[in-house]
Design a protein around this nucleic acid. Structure first.
Lengths: 155, 155
DNA sequence: TGGAATTCGTACTGAAACGGTCCTGTTTAT
DNA sequence: ATAAACAGGACCGTTTCAGTACGAATTCCA
């Protein structure tokens, strides 16, 4: 159904949450509680994002996760690629070499066009844009949304 | 992996093949042979496309399939929707009503943007454009590609 | 220096979707 | 009447997905 996996969905929710509070770090239980997502999945997803370089992880007693880069620099393309591999709407697209049907399949080039259009759409949207404008009832007190969101230093 | 199913892929190959020979009809074995796809899948896919109104089917001894409309009128959006349901990159998009995470999930609106971008890209590509420009060794002699493909009236 | 908190890696399981096959019925041309 | 072809399911093996669990490594802090 041309659908992203749930884990990717989770990942984006988590990243936007982090993007909304760039000054502090979160550990897994905090994020799970604040986003309402199942803890084991949250943990699993964060690990993956850290391994892919989108999150900076900090081990130990007061460890946690934070964005590795400003939210405005992280595109949806990168997030999705990190969580589920290269964006390839058909199998033959990331097949580096030949396709066994190549002789009879005239559509390959056109799939590349479609794939490219999708990728461009995702490239144009950054994490900063996915984050909510301002969320009145959330626990955080957002102050400003200019270049870099600032908030009061945690409750 | 944001990927279409194989059946959809097959469907598009079949449709482009039909689009390249608008003057005649094909039965399943013919199409399977000429596209190199497995017959049972071809048959299954054609049935579905016919039920969804993209193909006109003709039963009986010399039956077969043909496009129900000119190839230039059939968009990729329609083809994909026919074969795998509405285009919804996340679960919450075609959920008509509420989403249980709605209170804590700020990304829903943005997913709609992304989904819309994808849909638009697919809307802009018609079956006629997916078909090969001209295929020297194919049986059909394409004459022109203006508004509506015209070909010589069958071999 | 030792213990506690936390991430890291990986292995495992149940459920669902996908890819593919097959069978039985219905329609139609000859 | 018969054979060719579509129509509509039922069915099954494999893979992927979602979720769980556990042990190891790291770091802070008392």
């Amino acid at each position: 159904m041309i659908r992203i996996t749930k884990q990717t969905d989770y990942g984006i929710v988590l990243l936007t949450h982090l993007a909304a509070h760039p000054e502090r770090t979160f550990n897994s239980p905090e994020l799970a509680a604040e986003t309402g997502l199942p803890l084991p999945m949250v943990s699993k997803t964060l690990k993956l994002l850290a391994r892919e370089g989108l999150l900076a992880s900090h081990r130990g007693v007061r460890g946690g996760y934070g964005l590795a880069e400003p939210a405005s620099e992280i595109t949806m393309t990168r997030v999705i690629s990190a969580l589920e591999g290269p964006i390839a709407i058909t199998e033959c697209i990331d097949l580096s070499g030949e396709c066994s049907h190549e002789q009879v399949c005239p559509t390959r080039n056109n799939w590349q066009r479609i794939n490219h259009a999708l990728k461009e759409a995702l490239d144009r949207i950054s994490l900063a844009e996915m984050a909510p404008p301002v969320n009145a009832d959330s626990g955080a007190r957002l102050v400003q949304l200019g270049r870099g969101i600032s908030a009061t230093p945690a409750a």
